[in-house]
């Protein structure tokens, strides 16, 4: 429907379009804490700082942060190391069903903190596939079945493909094994438009049958293909929903700007979690 935006263009050409600069004051940067926890992965918290909106460079690196992980009773579980550029890590893994708190202290900033719960993986009970083969790609409609627990739940679907592809370059033919992972977009009318996250509003506490669609290149040989059902906690769902919405509407003069969800006290970013279940396709 973007083509209806030509209405604005008409409005603009009806009058004259004159352009002048608009100044935005420089505010103090905020500490950015980003972590999406997963019981299958070790602790990994990204600490950066925000930049002025007109800043061209990604200069958000924050060294020497003290990142402390606590349980819901504020008992320290681990203090994370900083082996990477901006990541603070530990060899421990968060456990499904637990609640964790993170606290980040950096000189020159107020300490920031956040709380999140780790959801349980949600098993897929069946996947029904309907494939339409085209010239060099396949269109797949997948019906994914799982049982939704009674409370409010949030999900996201991914497809993971491992395949051998052949390609040609100046040195001749070459074959490589590649892995790619991308979100599965749902049939639009069923859930929020153009997003792969969804809630259980329409099937709460019952057996869910979700239809999703994806395509893949047929010139390669598929070694393994999986549907992954991520069980998200509420914070991750809200973050994904608003982040996608902001990405999609940025530049649309008819849309209200979208504030991306954040649950970081005294800072910005996201501290959330998900748990995945993989279902291998035949």
């Amino acid at each position: 429907m973007k083509r209806y935006n030509w209405i604005l263009i008409l409005v603009l050409i009806t009058g004259c379009q004159l352009v002048v600069d608009f100044e935005i004051p420089i505010d103090k940067p905020k500490l950015v804490l980003n972590a999406i926890l997963n019981p299958d992965s070790t602790w990994n918290v990204s600490v950066t700082q925000s930049r002025h909106i007109l800043d061209e460079f990604s200069a958000g690196y924050v060294p020497n942060a003290v990142v402390t992980i606590m349980d819901e009773n504020d008992i320290v579980i681990s203090t994370l190391d900083q082996p990477g550029f901006r990541e603070y890590r530990s060899d421990l893994k968060p456990q499904a069903g637990k609640i964790y708190k993170v606290k980040v202290e950096v000189q020159g900033f107020e300490p920031v903190s956040a709380l999140t719960n780790i959801p349980q993986p949600m098993p897929i009970t069946a996947v029904k596939i309907d494939t339409v083969l085209n010239d060099d790609y396949a269109d797949v409609t997948a019906e994914i079945t799982f049982t939704d627990p009674p409370e409010k739940n949030y999900y996201q679907l991914y497809v993971s493909t491992k395949m051998i592809v052949q390609y040609w370059n100046s040195n001749g033919t070459r074959a490589d094994t590649i892995n790619y992972l991308h979100p599965l977009y749902l049939y639009k009318s069923e859930f929020e438009e153009s997003t792969s996250v969804f809630n259980d509003f329409k099937f709460n506490g019952a057996t869910a049958k979700i239809k999703a669609r994806f395509s893949y290149w047929t010139r390669g040989t598929i070694l393994k293909q999986q549907i992954i059902l991520l069980h998200l906690n509420e914070a991750y769902y809200k973050y994904e929903l608003t982040r996608n919405l902001q990405e999609r509407t940025t530049g649309d003069p008819f849309a209200q700007p979208v504030q991306v969800f954040s649950n970081i006290t005294n800072g910005i970013g996201i501290f959330a979690a998900c748990a995945g279940y993989s279902f291998e396709l035949d």
Binding site: P29, N34, T48, Q49, G60, P257, Q259, G269
Partner: peptide, 30 residues
């Protein structure tokens, strides 16, 4: 409503892709 800050997004499944999020302090803030 204008953004004043930007910061990196987080996606654990596509870690090499981080887009910038625009931060709006509040609605109609300018």
């Amino acid at each position: 409503t204008l953004p004043t800050l930007q910061y990196q997004s987080q996606n654990p499944f596509v870690p090499y892709y981080t887009s910038d999020i625009r931060y709006y302090e509040s609605r109609n803030n300018f």
